[in-house]
Design a binder for these strands. Structure first.
Lengths: 129, 129
DNA sequence: ATTTATGCAAACTATTTGCATTGCC
DNA sequence: GGCAATGCAAATAGTTTGCATAAAT
């Protein structure tokens, strides 16, 4: 089963990469509609799944029950503000020592590590939340 | 708005704590039914939400799109096997250094840290997956 | 006695799927 | 030309909600 490059798939990828907000599928779909109003929601779902499989985009783990996506696949962590519920990128969080600790204490083969921080972002802090 | 201790809520909590499998709501509901066949699914949903709010149980972050729950609220990490899709507990993964790194490089106030590892578990490894 | 929690069914939201058609390769 | 991908609508999860009733305080 070969894979093809379609206009729709490119728009989905490009739109997600431009957005720095870690959108949900619905938010991404809205943004995609601005570029091509004829794209169907199912197409966005299908392409997002494929892009995740291909490793071109990634899911972001959160506790809010909705799946968020990130067009940046470099290894980095995320911070979710419990007040404004925005997701932020955190680069430079090194997880090598965690992985070493798990290797020593278990027999699991680790291929990925995800880290999510929760708390209050600077902006919400300033608002004296 | 006061909160009451009901038989149903106790059964939900007890059942989850007994299960070491990090069940989804549906799996938990099945197990609850074995103890009391008259409990409704909505009751399980409502009680699970409340117990999470009360900090007596916790959601487990995974990439499989379904929410899993853990009756153990001690701070610990999880490992998901990409072959058998089981979730395992990992104790002794110390995240203090990660938190320190984020404190230094950002102005976020961190209240929680979640770590998920993905890979292949020992059993699946032995099966030469 | 009051009022929260329950059980059921209906409603709602998120996601997947079937199918005829389009459009890459 | 062949077959993967699309767009639409219907189907299928997963979760929440309205309401009359039950039960905890």
């Amino acid at each position: 089963m070969n894979t093809r490059n379609t206009r729709q798939k490119e728009i989905v990828l490009k739109t997600l990469c431009e957005l720095k907000t870690h959108p949900t599928i619905l938010e991404l779909y809205q943004a995609v509609l601005h570029k091509d109003a004829s794209i169907g929601q199912a197409t966005v779902y299908r392409n997002v799944s494929k892009l995740v499989e291909e490793g071109k985009i990634q899911k972001v783990l959160t506790k809010d029950g909705v799946t968020h996506y990130d067009g940046d696949c470099r290894n980095h962590s995320h911070f979710m503000c419990n007040s404004c519920h925005r997701l932020f990128d955190l680069y430079g969080v090194n997880t090598n020592n965690l992985i070493k600790a798990v290797r020593k204490s278990s027999c699991f083969i680790i291929s990925n590590t995800y880290v999510l921080f929760e708390g209050i972002c600077e902006e919400c802090m300033d608002k004296c939340y």
